[in-house]
């Protein structure tokens, strides 16, 4: 579902992403870990077609993103770190708008159904987004992905700033989407959440994918150790 083939992005002399090869299948959650500037967001931007690769290519549902920008976006949903919706509109209205511009029409009942499925309480459905917490907005983001019937979900630091409860709920939602066959790529700093939800974990450093392993084959402690080793943070560990 999500593939990259020697995907490279260079800004002048600086290599932001260096020959990245990813292959994320349906029903798989791939967590990209790495420090700031490791190339996680660049990878997502390239998959979204927001920036052009210096070399290599990115594919969504076997469509080359750079050659089929609009088509490839039909299959994906994206939740940024700070999901900003329209504050004067309600959750239902935001959902209707974002699914509408993507060409999908739903009744109020259907829209409320998506919001409920995304875990948003019923009484919040018709409240203005301005009063929503970050966790609630992320749930609307998930509802947008559900309404879009996205095959691919790209997440950029979705749990940063969420309290543990909200983060846990978010993790559960990702599992629901995974079970529906959605291929998920999540860039995060959150080792704990990555270990909880991921099927595969990749660690990036300076634009390169340094480590890649199956989440179930590793404990959280091992993950932390590998991560710190990869980042050369070993000396900080007591």
């Amino acid at each position: 579902m999500i593939n990259t083939n020697n995907l490279t992005k260079q800004y002048g002399d600086h290599i932001a992403l260096d020959r990245l090869n990813l292959n994320i299948e349906q029903g798989e959650i791939y967590c990209l870990l790495g420090a700031n500037g490791a190339g996680k967001t660049t990878t997502i931007n390239l998959l979204l077609g927001f920036i052009q690769p210096t070399s290599g290519s990115a594919f969504i549902n076997q469509l080359n993103v750079q050659e089929n920008q609009k088509k490839s976006k039909r299959f994906l949903a994206y939740i940024p770190e700070n999901l900003m919706l329209y504050p004067t509109l309600s959750a239902v209205e935001n959902l209707r708008y974002f699914s509408g511009i993507g060409g999908k029409e739903f009744s109020i009942d259907e829209l409320e159904g998506f919001l409920t499925e995304a875990g948003l309480q019923k009484e919040a459905h018709h409240k203005r987004i301005a009063s929503f917490s970050k966790g609630m907005r992320q749930k609307v983001g998930i509802a947008i992905a559900l309404a879009k019937d996205a095959k691919v979900l790209l997440l950029d630091e979705p749990t940063s700033g969420l309290d543990p409860k909200a983060s846990n709920e978010f993790g559960q939602l990702l599992q629901t989407l995974k079970n529906k066959g959605v291929a998920i790529l999540m860039a995060t700093h959150d080792l704990f959440r990555a270990k909880e939800v991921a099927t595969t974990i990749g660690i990036m450093k300076e634009g390169k994918l340094k480590q890649e392993f199956t989440a179930k084959d590793i404990t959280l402690q091992q993950l932390e150790e590998v991560y710190l080793n990869t980042m050369d943070y070993k000396q900080l560990v007591p």
């Binding site: 609009k70 490839s72 976006k73 994206y78 940024p80 999901l83 900003m84 919706l85 974002f98 983001g141």
Partner: peptide, 8 residues
């Protein structure tokens, strides 16, 4: 960014 992630 959310808007631009749609096929518009």
């Amino acid at each position: 960014r959310l808007l631009a992630s749609n096929s518009i």
